[in-house]
């Protein structure tokens, strides 16, 4: 069963991940499976903050300052995205 991501958790890019910011996107490569992905907009911002070692709650707080959406919506969407990143083995517990 997939692990549910909790708001208090800290996640980090997995050791097998290589990524670069290209224009306004994060291009992410899983060096083990050779699968590649991209994130843009708020997804890119979440990824940058995650890479800086921020917790999910800190990320939601930063997004709330920058984006025109409520904290509830931002938290729900961030957790959805992080669960997806976890399922694809792009992030792991910090």
């Amino acid at each position: 069963m997939p692990t549910k991501t909790r708001p208090t958790e800290k996640l980090k890019p997995s050791a097998k991940i290589a990524w670069r910011k290209v224009a306004d996107e994060a291009v992410i490569l899983n060096t083990e499976t050779a699968a590649y992905y991209s994130l843009d907009g708020a997804g890119l911002r979440i990824w940058e903050l995650l890479s800086e070692g921020r917790s999910i709650e800190e990320i939601v707080g930063t997004l709330a300052d920058e984006y025109d959406a409520s904290s509830e919506v931002l938290r729900r969407d961030a957790l959805d995205l992080l669960s997806n990143l976890r399922k694809e083995k792009i992030v792991e517990p910090a």
Binding site: L29, T33, A34, A35, Y36, Y37, S38, L39, G41, A42, G43, I46, D65, E66, Y67, D68, A69, V73, L74, D77, A78, D80, L81, N84, L85, E88, I90
Partner: peptide, 20 residues
């Protein structure tokens, strides 16, 4: 003073193949 928000989505583009 805020950016318009759109739900973030992970886009998967496929698997890279190495050509020797």
């Amino acid at each position: 003073g805020k950016k318009p928000y759109k739900k973030p989505q992970l886009s998967k583009h496929g698997v890279l193949s190495i050509v020797e």
